[in-house]
Simulated scan of single mutants.
Amino acid sequence: MALFLWMSGALASFCILAIGARELSGELTIAQSLCIRSAIGLVFLSAVYFIRSQIFKDKQQKSLASQPRVNVIKLHLFRNVFHFIAQYGWFFGIGLLPLAEVFALEFTVPIWTLLIASFFLDEKVTMNKLIAIFLGTLGVIAIVQPGYALIDYASIIVLGSAICFAISHTTTKSLAKTESPLTILLFMCIVQLPIGLFLSLSSWVWPQGEQWLWLTVIGLSALSAHYCLAKAMKYAEITTIITLDFFRLPLIAMVGVFFYNEAFELPLLIGGALMLIGNLVGVRGLTAKSIKVKQNI
């Protein structure tokens, strides 16, 4: 139950993040948006982290003291370099491609994650996972109905960002074994802030009025999304988490219907149904595995 609650929070937060990115597209440089997002997140998260550390005398920090911190920090750096590249490509795609096409390309992430996790985290590639990913991919194709026009340089960049997201997700899963979600998020802001600042200095323009509102939305929703995702990763394997993430496409499509007057079409229903079936198959495999573990105990 906890897995689905955390994933629901992650899905809602990622949808809000996409809306904010769409509203700011073309108004500020991507690097500047990512820089300010990190700054807002760092201010908010530092306050939360400080309060938490004062109220709860972390048992987790004591256990982390015995860990090889240099290696952990290197892993944080590795994760956030790839995550920054992935976010940059994602924002870039939103500015040049229809939102549905960007999401369709982004949802190749489960395929890349499945391959990367199987090689580097020794996660088993089960039939349930393969079926869930296959049906989810069919759902994406049914909704977007991509054509040959999809293959251009912007699409290649978004596909590259999908691979970087997969590397980032896999590294997050590895970090989640020893690091708290707050620590993962704090490092995300600390590492990505100077990268964004360096890349945006030559074209820096101070945001005005409503732009600050959307930057705040992006900053807080990004924190919420990654916090929920990191918490969810404590309850399931990375490939299961990413499979559940397929729900994000029909959700953002519904946002388009109600807030941007986009057409509600039959392919959306068909694609959503395929994704739902795929997720139910994945959940069934996860539940069966949990029951088996309890019986062995």
Rank of each mutant, 00 (worst) to 15 (best):
E106K: 12
G256V: 09
A236F: 07
C15M: 10
F264E: 05
A21Y: 10
G160Y: 04
V43F: 01
I85G: 11
L150P: 02
L175T: 00
I184Y: 04
I190S: 11
L215K: 03
L213T: 14
K177Y: 07
N71Y: 15
L99G: 00
L138H: 03
R284I: 14
L268T: 00
V205T: 14
L229T: 02
L185Y: 13
K294S: 15
K57I: 05
N296A: 11
G282S: 09
S290C: 00
V109P: 00
L114C: 00
S221K: 07
L138M: 09
N128S: 02
K231I: 07
A149E: 14
Q295C: 10
S155N: 09
S180C: 07
A12H: 10
L138R: 05
L121V: 09
K74T: 05
Q208C: 15
S8C: 04
L213C: 08
G20K: 12
T243M: 02
Y88S: 01
I85A: 12
I291K: 15
K231Y: 06
Q87G: 02
S168I: 02
S168Y: 07
I51D: 01
I143Y: 09
F84K: 03
L135V: 09
K57A: 03
V125H: 01
G26E: 12
L269P: 12
F56E: 04
G256Y: 07
A162K: 03
A162T: 08
S38A: 13
G272E: 10
F246Q: 03
T243C: 01
E179N: 11
I184R: 06
N296V: 12
N80C: 15
G147W: 15
T239Y: 00
V281T: 02
V293A: 05
L266E: 03
V293N: 06
A117Y: 01
I111R: 00
K292H: 06
F78K: 04
T287C: 02
M188G: 15
Y153F: 15
P194H: 14
I218N: 05
G285N: 06
N128T: 01
L121I: 10
I30N: 12
V191W: 14
G271A: 06
V283E: 02
I111L: 01
M233C: 11
T170W: 01
V48Q: 10
S180T: 09
L99E: 00
M188V: 13
W206V: 12
F258I: 03
G271N: 03
V102N: 04
A12I: 11
I30T: 11
G147Y: 11
V205M: 11
P98T: 04
A225Y: 04
A162R: 05
L159R: 14
F107T: 04
W214M: 15
L130K: 08
G147D: 11
N261V: 10
I297G: 04
L197H: 07
N128W: 05
S33N: 15
S38N: 15
F264Q: 08
I195T: 14
P98I: 14
M254A: 09
G136C: 02
T108P: 00
G196D: 10
F258D: 03
S53L: 15
M188T: 13
F259P: 01
R248I: 06
L215W: 01
Q192I: 14
S168N: 04
V48D: 08
A236R: 09
F56H: 11
I85Y: 10
Q60H: 10
D58A: 08
Q67H: 08
A12K: 10
E106S: 11
L135H: 12
I156N: 13
L75R: 06
V72I: 13
K289N: 08
K173Y: 01
L96A: 11
I190N: 09
